[in-house]
Write a protein that binds this DNA or RNA. Sequence first.
DNA 1: ACCTGAACACCGTTCAAGT
DNA 2: ACCTGAACACCGTTCAAGT
Lengths: 199, 199
Amino acid sequence: MQLRRHDVLAGAIAILDEYGLADLTMRRLASSLGVQPGALYWHFPNKQTLLAAITDEILADASAGPPAPAETWDERLPTLARRMRDALLSHRDGAEVASASYAARLASEAPQTALAAACIDGGLPADEAGMAARALFSYVLGQTMDEQSRMQMDSHGALTESASPLFESPTAADGFEYGLGLFIGGVRALPAVVDQRLS
Amino acid sequence: MQLRRHDVLAGAIAILDEYGLADLTMRRLASSLGVQPGALYWHFPNKQTLLAAITDEILADASAGPPAPAETWDERLPTLARRMRDALLSHRDGAEVASASYAARLASEAPQTALAAACIDGGLPADEAGMAARALFSYVLGQTMDEQSRMQMDSHGALTESASPLFESPTAADGFEYGLGLFIGGVRALPAVVDQRLS
DNA sequence: ACCTGAACACCGTTCAAGT
DNA sequence: ACCTGAACACCGTTCAAGT
C-alpha cells in the first residue's frame, strides 16, 4: 500500500487532534504511518508546507460556497467569520497551526478573499475591501488562538477561579461576537457603505 | 562577572535583532554569553518564559505612561495601538515572539489593560471594555505579524511584483490605520458611547 | 548562589541506495 | 515513482558535582 499525499495529511490531522501540535513531529507522523521519516519528504518538501496544507484543509469549507440567497453583506461577513472560528476550534491547536502557516505565508488566502467579496458587496472599493478583510481575518485568528489557548490551560489543571455561575465573565463566544460587532459596526459607518445604503 | 537575569534578557534580544527567532536557541544564547546552556536555567525556568520576558520588555513602554493631557479616548486608543505596533516592529520577529508568548499565556496583560482603560473613558462598562480591548489587541498583534512576515519575505529574495510606483498597493502602515479606523468607528457607534457623547 | 560537564531524549532534513 | 537506512547537525532540559 503506497502512501499518498492525502494519507500523510490525514495522519497529521489525526495526531494533531489527539495529541496536539507539540506532538506532531515528522518522526512521529512517519511512525504512525508505518514509514521512515524520510518518506514524508517525498510528499511534502518540509514541515511548514505540511502545516500549511493542514491549515488549508481545516479552513477549506469555511470560505467555500456562495452566499445564502438574500443574504446581505452584513449578515454574510459575520457568518463567514463564525464559520472560520468554528473550523479552527474543531481541531486541537487549529488556530495556532493556522497562525504559524499564515506567518510563513504558505496558507491559502481563500478566507481573506471570501471576506473581501462580502465587503465589496457592502459597497467598498476593492482596495479597501482587501484591507478590511485582512483586518477581520487577523481578528478572527488572534481571538480564536487566544480562546483555544485558554481552553488548553483550563483543561490542564487550573480550575476557573469562579466556578460560581453568579459572577460569570463573558464566554469566549460572547467575546468573539462582541469584537465582530465592533468590526461590522465600523464597516457600516464607512462613507462608501452609507452612500450605497442611501442610494 | 556573574550573569544576571537582565544580561540573559539583553543577550536574547540582541540575538533576536541580529539573527531572528529561528536562531534564538538556548544553546546559542548561552555561548554568546560565554556560559554553558544549563546556566540559563538558573535564571529562567524554560525558553517559553524567556520569550515572554522578551515580549514584556518589548511592549513595556508602549502601554506605560498616562494619557497626554486633554487626549480623548478616541485619540488615546489609536495612539496606544500605534505604539504597540511600533514597539513590535522595532525588533526582528517581534510580533511572532509576542504572539507565541500570549498563546502560551505567559506575557503581561498590561497592553490589554491600557486599551481597556481608554475604552472605559469612552463610556464602556468594564466587561465590554475588556472584550473590546482584547479584540483590538488581537488585531494589532495579527496585523503586525502579517506585516513583519511580509517584510521578511521581501528582504529574502522575492522582489515586489510591482516595483512601479503607479499601481502602488496600500502600504502596511495604511492597512494598519484602516483596520484601526474600522475598530474605532465600531466603538464610536456603540450605544453606550453615543449616550456619553450626548450627555 | 551560581555555574560546569555531561548526559538524556529527542528534533528536521538530506541523500545514496534499493525496489 | 516511492521508500529505506543511516547519517548530519542540531535542539531543550536536567542534574550531580563543583566553587
